[in-house]
């Protein structure tokens, strides 16, 4: 279970300014289902997932993973999640097996259980043939398998995938999508971000459509499609995004009907209590 309420993230850029990467986002990812965070590049997907994986701290709002607040109990949250992004690297001077073991030990897994689990994962991912090769010598697909094994070595109840297929060739990407699909079920919560609608179609039970740092719509896929009268997620997505863009540009054109900020708190040029 992942609960996100009013989450905002402002990246300070110096000189008293900042970039508002995420604004007032709210959604819930439920166990036993796959939740998709859909949006174009730069929409705020990675920011959201990084906050959920406690790498970033939220500027405002809150997020809970299995009831643990990401800002207050980051260590507890990290124990419960497995995180994988498309741009994740591997340690080139370690073997695949060493790398998975390294992370298993960081999760404080008992040694015998770890060895058992490593063997299990090597079989599951068909990675036995290159298990003892240095990661620097592995192909992209093999590296991604190592990354997956690393992310799920502690069998986490919550899995977060940030564009897991970006940068992969089509065959490897297909394998990764299949694998993510196979994780569905039980009490496991899976959260996937992507801008590839075919992947979303295949994987997601629930989605949030995010654009420009704002969650435009969220809910079960079927419900949203029905409400919008669309048959595919792709159509739904463009419908929602276009609608938002239109509203924004309409508001932009005529300034007259809507008086700019109320006369009360008139922006003072010398603001900041200067004079």
């Amino acid at each position: 279970m992942i609960e996100v309420e009013g989450l905002s993230k402002l990246y300070p850029t110096g000189r008293g300014r900042g970039v508002l990467a995420l604004y007032d986002a709210s959604f819930t990812a439920r166990p036993g289902r796959i939740f998709g965070l859909l949006g174009p590049n730069g929409a705020g997907k990675t920011t959201t997932l990084r906050i959920l994986s406690t790498v970033l701290r939220p500027t405002a709002g809150r997020a809970r993973v299995l009831g643990h607040d990401v800002a207050e109990e980051p260590e507890l949250v990290r124990r419960k999640i497995g995180f994988l992004s498309g741009s994740t690297g591997v340690y080139e001077r370690m073997t695949a097996r060493e790398m998975v073991e390294y992370f298993g030990r960081l999760y404080d897994m008992p040694e015998d259980r770890l060895q058992e689990r490593v063997e299990e994962l090597l079989d599951l991912l068909e990675a036995r043939s290159f298990a003892d090769r240095l990661c620097g010598r592995l192909s992209t697909g093999q590296r991604q398998k190592v990354s997956i094994a690393r992310a799920i070595v502690h069998d986490p109840p919550v899995l977060i995938f940030d564009e897991p297929t970006s940068g992969l060739d089509i065959l490897v990407a297909r394998g990764v999508v299949d694998f993510v699909a196979s994780l569905k079920g039980g009490d496991r919560t899976v959260l996937v971000s992507t801008h590839i609608m075919s992947e979303a179609e295949r994987l997601c039970d629930d989605v949030a459509i995010i654009h420009g740092g704002i969650v435009l719509q969220t809910g079960p896929v079927e419900e949203l499609k029905e409400r919008a009268g669309k048959t595919t997620i792709e159509d739904l997505f463009f419908d929602v995004v276009r609608g938002a863009v239109d509203r924004a540009s309409r508001a932009e054109l005529p300034v007259a009907p809507e008086p700019a900020p109320e006369p009360g708190p008139e922006p003072d040029p010398g603001a900041g209590g200067a004079s």
């Binding site: 850029t13 008293g16 970039v19 590049n41 730069g42 863009v245 924004a248």
Partner: peptide, 18 residues
């Protein structure tokens, strides 16, 4: 408009003072 910017980097400069 930044929203229509498609691949743009989300919201641009925001003055938190504001």
């Amino acid at each position: 408009a930044p929203v229509a910017g498609g691949g743009g980097g989300g919201w641009e400069m925001l003055d938190p003072e504001a």
